[in-house]
Design a protein around this nucleic acid. Sequence first.
DNA 1: AAATTAAAATTACAAGCGTAAATTGTAATG
DNA 2: CATTACAATTTACGCTTGTAATTTTAATTT
Lengths: 131, 131
Amino acid sequence: MEKISKISESEWEVMKIIWEHGPVTSDKIVVLLGDEVQWTQQTIKTFINRLVKKGVIGYKKEGRWYHYYSLISKEECIKEESEFFLKRVFNGAVGTLVSNFLEEAHLSENEIEKLQMLLQEKKKKDESNQK
Amino acid sequence: MEKISKISESEWEVMKIIWEHGPVTSDKIVVLLGDEVQWTQQTIKTFINRLVKKGVIGYKKEGRWYHYYSLISKEECIKEESEFFLKRVFNGAVGTLVSNFLEEAHLSENEIEKLQMLLQEKKKKDESNQK
DNA sequence: AAATTAAAATTACAAGCGTAAATTGTAATG
DNA sequence: CATTACAATTTACGCTTGTAATTTTAATTT
């Protein structure tokens, strides 16, 4: 559980691609980022390199190509990032955060129902814990 | 609706105090931040100054004291910050974001019920829109 | 009015970041 | 095997940020 050195905004975009597309070459990353961002291929390579330096991604060589893959769990990262955001912007108040997002959001009926079930579950569990 | 220059992590902590405590002097800010952070008074003054430079807070002088107040809306800032976070970490999927937070969270029964009502409302509204 | 004092403002400085060009190393090719 | 082409690595550079010490300014006190 050692400290993960912080991933910057831009590096996050790269990480998302790497998480989603398994071991992937740099030029594939460039292509996949294509419509998301405005960076040149050089810039993207800089970010890849910094991620390697930070030890959050690794690679295996294959011919002249490096295939990059993540060394850290996406879920773990999201969790950390979320906790940080929650604390920073909402002072740790999950209820406020959630209602804020819900108010602004537009959700499908299906999604709404899933959330309702989640809450129902939660309530039941709390009740049995309370007893 | 001009571009607000970005507020850094540390500056956010100062902004939270200023939003919550109306026009407030620097030394009051120092005291109020006391248990939150580890910064020296000098460091805090730097942040205050940068916020002034960025044009997000103003002040009125009174004797030797400056009383600082926010020039930007907390709600607006939270909204921007939230949108950014949503996009960055959850690719814009509010449903996923919310269920993620809910799963981790521990919420009071009251809070749960408030959220349930919010969802109920939302569903109703969607239905009538759909028709 | 001069001296003191305590704010604010200026200056400092290293690390990180966004942005990329230049260089190096090495696999592929003639 | 020498050359080429292309991927990775190194270098670059100005801006922001975290962290604060130093200097200036102006209110208060003697």
